[in-house]
Structures are given as structure tokens and as C-alpha cells.
Design a protein around this nucleic acid. Structure first.
Lengths: 190, 190, 190, 190
DNA sequence: AATTAATCGAGACGGTACGTCTGGTCTTTGT
DNA sequence: ACAAAGACCAGACGTACCGTCTCGATTAATT
């Protein structure tokens, strides 16, 4: 039984303002330029209100990720029935996002955040390979492609695909059309 | 004992001391606790001596990587002729290293450094997938496994494998024996 | 005619707890370490209960002074008939109080409070020179000493004596026996 | 033999800027509105440069006092040969200063600073009663007034006079002409 | 009795300043 | 010329309090 408490409750408005400010600044300036003071100023919020509810800026980012404030719905893998086409589409989308001014920064910022904060790491992985994303799409495609049978390790497949994307982002090498095809060949077979 | 100095040429002793101190501190405390001041203090070196030769701490890490001060030789993929066994061995080694006290921190630190510094990113990719490592071993194995033919995209394969490792490290999920097998299944086929 | 009012009246228990907590903390930690939050916590009282009734911490201190919660009765000047002896006694008592662990802090805290709060300043002056204290004793001694005639400016005399005490306290110089005699000589003549 | 040291020496320009900014802000806004951040901003100086050389804002004020940045020369007691007239003049000047917009604040600010910082307390006392001021003037007047003989305790006399001034300032009561005469009567005799 | 309104303890809120730490630059002294 | 040492300006860190506001419970006087 929770202790009966009086007094004001947590302000949802402040919470939203903080998450939004964090997402915006992360996209605009990148992870290492992201400061608690900056978030507080942008969100019109006292610093203590951030420290009261989150232990670190990594934790704030993790919650942004959870709330979908950072990686939007366009990361969902489409489902046209043709798994190769769908993944190709997804990869194109992801790298188009990376190609944008802010997108370039964004994924690397997330990786940096994930490297420093365990929770962010787990959530980033979920966002990329989770049921609503690559792994889910692969699972639904079992049987539609010769290499995708019931005993195909789809989770690991998704992991490998997403990991390749991250490695590309870290090495700053663009993923061009032919590379994309080869990557799918490598992971799905030909 | 102070470093011996030898007039107006660049001091190799200072350079080595800086690289070693950086590598040590990175392994001991992690990327975000790594400071230029800390490096200078540990290396018994003036801060300016670091700023004179490197533009950022990311660049110092990149050079550490290049000099092999960080990722040691044990990351080389063994070559017994059995590519599946060799890669399994390599993955085991990498994750054993991650399991260690300092290793846990190390890869993530490298990823964090890579996320913030382009040069480090490229070098990290080279270290993992470069000719001396996974990609090279895969290339040399062409023909020895049914899925590895001359037109297999080995670079992308290596990328996917290494990427999966990074994603595991970021999500703090251990890579156990069965996962490992499934990952190889996913990438090499069965 | 008073405005018709409903609801509970001011809690005397809360008021007393606040004044007592203030006096205690002032003696224990000194003026600059005295905070409204500290008082509220010590008195088991909500902050608003303080802000509802007092405009500032200076005002709380002033009321403590008025209620005798801070400067106790031992500051009363004794009356043995011998004015010189009585004042000497009083000065000794005051400086003995300063010598104590908490007393050292106390007078300076009062001075600090007086410097920031007009009301406290006036009350401090009244406590030291007011009718129940030095000025009163001097007035009652008119005629018993050659320098104390009906046209002696006793208020100013009391002010000078008390002021000297404050200045000594501010300069952290102890008032030893010979100094004490000289001070009385200076003020009362010889 | 002092340790041989390399590196830059303390910047006198920064020191002067800090002292001047402190004195200005103290006169303009008063003691409790005086902040280290405010001083640093006004002096165009990093906060650390203040903390490197002074332990507290009280210590900065004490050094301002020592350098004459706060209490200017007009506090010197004039010397016309007539001690009563000179002291009357001095008291008038001091209270005129208190009557000014900034002066009102200044003495109380000094008292507040003195209450919190031992060094400031000692220096304030020296400024008021020291050899260059009231005590010195009294000493030089020995023999020119009936009450001022060689065995008059001039230091205590000066202390009583200055203390009375401080007490007046704390109680916010103006020192008018008749009070002034009575005060001198009380201290110098009639 | 039911209603009304002010009080109470508690504590979240937007802020300011604290004292510390680090970044990157610049200056001094020594080799 | 280069290296060490370290002072400089700048600004973020995480903490402590400020004074205001909000909450639910309690408590009198007014209906």
C-alpha cells in the first residue's frame, strides 16, 4: 500500500516540456552539446525539476526514445508482402534521415547516449529491432522467402542489420544503392 | 621522476606517455570521465602539449587505436581453416573481453568516442572489419563454405557481424552460447 | 466591526515552534546558515506557515528578540547601588556569553540580522540600551556618581557603551579586565 | 629558499578589477545582494579567479577595505586644533554619508560583512578607530581639553564613539544636531 | 448538520547563486 | 623552439534555498 501523500503532484506539462526540449536540442546540436542547463532553459523549467525526476541526461534521452519524441513513426518497416523490398525501403529511409542536416547528428547522438546510459542502450535496441520494427517484419515474412524459414534466427538477423546501419553511421560512410543491395544479400541471402 | 626532455624537437616520450595515459584512463574510467586535464596529469605532461598536437580528445583516442594501444592483438580472427569455428572463437573472445571489469566499459567508450569523432569512427570500423580482421578472414574463407562464394559481399557480412556485436554491447545484453550460434547462422547461413 | 470569518485561527503551537526553532538555529549555526527551510524542518512546519505570518527571516528574528527567546534575562544590568560595579558586572557577563561556543555566534548573528532588517535593528538597540537595561540603570544611578548628574545624557552614554561592546564583538577582540576598566573610565569618567 | 616555479604569475589587472567591482556593487546594491557571480560578471573575470585567491566574499570585502576602495579619505578626522569641533565635524560627515542613497547601505553592509568575516571585522574597527582616525585625533588632542589628559583611555573613547555611530546606523535612527552634542558631551565630558 | 473558508504539513514549481570542475588559450620559466 | 606548469575567461555541473503555488486534510464559524 502506497503511503498516502498530500501536496502537489508531478506536473505533466513540465515533463512534456523537458522531453520535447531534449529531443529538439539533441537533433539540433547533438549529444555532446546537450546540457541540462540548456534543456532547462529551452523548456522554461528549473534545473531541479529535471534532477528531481531523472538521474542523468542519458535517462532523459531514454525516456524521449520511449515516448517516441526522437525516432518518429517513419522508422516503421513497411509491409507490402515483399520483404526484400520492404527492408530496402526501410534502409533507404533510415539513411535518408541520416543524410538530413539534423539526422546525421541524431543517430550518432543516440549511440553516444546509449554508450553512456544502459537504459538508453536497451531502448535504442528495442526501437531498432523490436517487435514493431525489423524483427517483427522479418517474423511476419517467414515462408515468403527461401531463406526465411521457421527456424531462421530473426532476432539475430535484425540485430545484424541494425548493427550494420549503426556501424555505417559511426564510420561516416554513406550507404549507397549498391551497398544497400549487397547488405540485404549478405543478410537475407540471394 | 620527470620525463627527460631533449630540446626543441617533438618529444616522443611525451607522445607515448599521452597515448598510454589515454588508453589506461579510457579502460579504467570510461569515455565520459576521460578529460584532457586527467590525461595531462597522468602523463606528467602540460595540457598545451596535448592541444599542440591533437585537436580533440577524440583524435587522441583515434591515434591510440591506430597504435594498438587500446584493442590488443587478441582481437585478431584466428585462422584454423574452419571459418565458422574461427568466427565463433572471435565472438567468444570479444564478449569475454566485454565481460571483464574494464572491458565492459571499453567497447562502449570506443563507440562513444566514435560517435563524437569522425576519425575514431573510421578507425574503429577498420579495426573491426578491416583486412586484418573479420572481412579479411571471410575473404580468405571463400570457397570453404557453401554460402561463401566469390560474389558474396564479405565487407557487408563483416559489417553486419561487427554491428551486431556493437548493438549487443550497447544494449548490455550478454551474448550467450546459443545466441552466438544463431548469430553465425543468421550471417553465414546454415 | 471585524469582518466575519470562518475557518481555524492561527495556531499558537506552530508560532511557538517556529520562534523556538529560529532561536535555536541562530545560536547553533549563526545568521548566514539560518534558512527558512531549515526553520520549517526543525519546527515541523510547512514553509508557507512561516511566509504567511512573517515577511522575511529578519522579521522572525525580530519577534524572537521581542519574545525574549534569544537574549535571556541574564543581560539585565544588576542593581547593587554601585553603578560602576554593576556595569562592570554586566560587561563581564556579556563577554562571558560571547566567549561561549554559541554565544560567540549569537551577538554577531544579531548584528548581521540588524544590518539587514530595520525592525531587528531597532529592537536590538532597545534590548541593549532600553529602559530595562543600561540606560535605565544609568538613569537610576544619577546622583550616586560624580559624573552622573541630572543633565547627563544617559541615553547617549548607554549607546556609547553598547556600541563599544558591538564593535569589540565585530573585531573579535576579547574584552579583558583592564580594557573593561578603561572602557568604564572612558564612559563614566574617573 | 622558495620552490622554483614556472607558469604565469597572478594577474594584477584581474585583482584590481575584482576589488573595484566588489566595492562598486557593495555601494550600489548592498551586502546581501552582493554575489560572487555578480562580481565576476562585472569584473569580466572567471569565477575561479576569485575563488583561487579569496576564500569568501567577506575576504574580498576585507581586502577592498584595506586598499581603501570602500571607505574613502573623507572619513579622516579633521584637525583644526579644536577637538570637539573636529569630532562634531566628523560625525556630521559620517551621518551625511549615511543619509546618501548609497551611504545608507554602505555602513550596514560593512557591518554585515564584519559580522560574518573576522578579518573584515578587524579592518573595519581599524578604519574607524585606528591611528589615522578617531583614536589618533584624540591622542593628538591630549592636553587641549580638560577631560583629555595623558592617562585618558583614548582607544576606548574612540571605540565608544564609533560604536555609538554603528548602533545608530543599525537602529536606523538619524543623528541630529542635539543628539550629536549630547553624544560628544557623554564621551568627552562637558 | 451542512456548508464555507482559512489553516496546516508537505512538497513541486521556476529561479538564482553556490562552489567545483573542465575546456581551450595564453603566459612564464627553464632546457 | 618546445616543454612543464599553471593562471586566465568561460560556462556546465549538481546542490541548496528562495518565495510562490497546489494539494488533501483539518478545523472553526456561518448557514
Amino acid at each position: 500500500m502506497p503511503l498516502p501523500r498530500s501536496g502537489p503532484v508531478r506536473s505533466e506539462a513540465a515533463r512534456q516540456a523537458i522531453l520535447q526540449a531534449t529531443a529538439d536540442l539533441l537533433a539540433e546540436r547533438g549529444y555532446d552539446a546537450l546540457t541540462i542547463e540548456g534543456i532547462a532553459a529551452r523548456a522554461q523549467v528549473g534545473k531541479q525539476t529535471i534532477y528531481r525526476w531523472w538521474p542523468s541526461k542519458g535517462a532523459v534521452i531514454a525516456e524521449c526514445l520511449l515516448e517516441g519524441k526522437i525516432l518518429p513513426g517513419r522508422l516503421l518497416v513497411p509491409d507490402t508482402g515483399d520483404i526484400r523490398h520492404d527492408l530496402s525501403q526501410w534502409l533507404t529511409t533510415v539513411f535518408a534521415l541520416l543524410g538530413e542536416d539534423q539526422g546525421e547528428t541524431l543517430l550518432r547522438s543516440l549511440v553516444a547516449a546509449a554508450a553512456e546510459n544502459a537504459d538508453t542502450g536497451r531502448r535504442l535496441r528495442d526501437s531498432l529491432t523490436g517487435s514493431g520494427s525489423v524483427a517483427g517484419r522479418l517474423r511476419s515474412a517467414i515462408g515468403t522467402a527461401p531463406n526465411l524459414t521457421t527456424d531462421t534466427p530473426v532476432d539475430e538477423l535484425a540485430e545484424a542489420l541494425s548493427g550494420a546501419v549503426i556501424l555505417r553511421a559511426l564510420s561516416r560512410e554513406p550507404l549507397r544503392e549498391p551497398d544497400l543491395v549487397r547488405l540485404l544479400d549478405a543478410v537475407l541471402g540471394r
